[in-house]
Structures are given as structure tokens and as C-alpha cells.
Computed example of a mutant assay.
Amino acid sequence: MYEIIILLRADLEVNKTAEYYESLSNGLGTKFFNEYQEYIETLKTFPFFEEKYDTVRTLPLKKFPYTIHFTVDENKKIVSVQAVISNYQDPNITRLKL
């Protein structure tokens, strides 16, 4: 089992996105947050998804156009969630620098 650490940037992005979806439709923000939480739970047991940028791995949400960007420290059994990014953002602007 891996420990999950969510960086402030990712936490703020998730909250902002949930608020945005909630402003569009009552309950939609909660659905976004719940899907995100399900994927975070998945990372606790299986964090080896696509390696995108050097050490950064990605896991796209299924129902919403967002992708979780994270790193894995196999020795310490830690998954660090770096960002939750809209799939419509320019990847050259939002690319993570670690």
C-alpha cells in the first residue's frame, strides 16, 4: 500500500475545478470530486500508470477531462500528486518541472 501525498497545487486545482463544475450544475462538482477520490484510492494500491515526463506519471479521469499527474517513490512507498490538469490546457504551458 502506498502513502498518498497531495501537493498544495493539486489540492487547489481539485477544489477550484469542483467549484467550477458545481457552478454549472448542482451536484456536478461533487461527482467530479468523488471520481477524483476514487482514482486517488486506486493509486494507493496500483500507482504504475503511464510515465509521461521523465518521472511524472499520469492517470486520466474517465468522466471528466482532467488528468492526475503524480510521481512514485517505490522505495518509500509514496505517491505524490503533483497536479490535476485539464486535458484542454496547452501542455507546453502546464508541463510539470520537477
Rank of each mutant, 00 (worst) to 15 (best):
L7N: 03
Y36F: 13
D54W: 10
R95I: 08
D11H: 03
F33R: 10
K16S: 13
K16Q: 11
I4V: 12
F33Q: 14
T42G: 06
A18L: 12
L61Q: 06
K77S: 05
N34H: 02
N87L: 10
L61E: 01
I68V: 06
E35H: 10
Y20I: 05
K76L: 14
V56M: 11
E41T: 03
V81T: 07
E74I: 14
H69Y: 15
L12K: 07
L96T: 03
Y66W: 09
G29K: 01
Y21N: 09
L96Y: 04
K97L: 05
L28Y: 03
F46A: 15
L7S: 09
S86T: 12
A18R: 07
P47W: 00
G27T: 11
F32A: 05
N92L: 09
S86Y: 05
F33E: 15
N92T: 14
N26R: 00
Q89R: 14
D54G: 05
R57D: 08
S80A: 13
Y88S: 14
F70M: 07
R95A: 08
D73Q: 02
E38D: 06
T17Q: 04
K97G: 02
L8A: 08
P91R: 12
R57M: 13
K62P: 02
R95Y: 03
H69S: 11
D11I: 06
G27N: 07
E22Q: 06
L98M: 11
E50Y: 06
Y66D: 13
D73H: 00
V81L: 10
F48L: 11
E38A: 06
V84F: 08
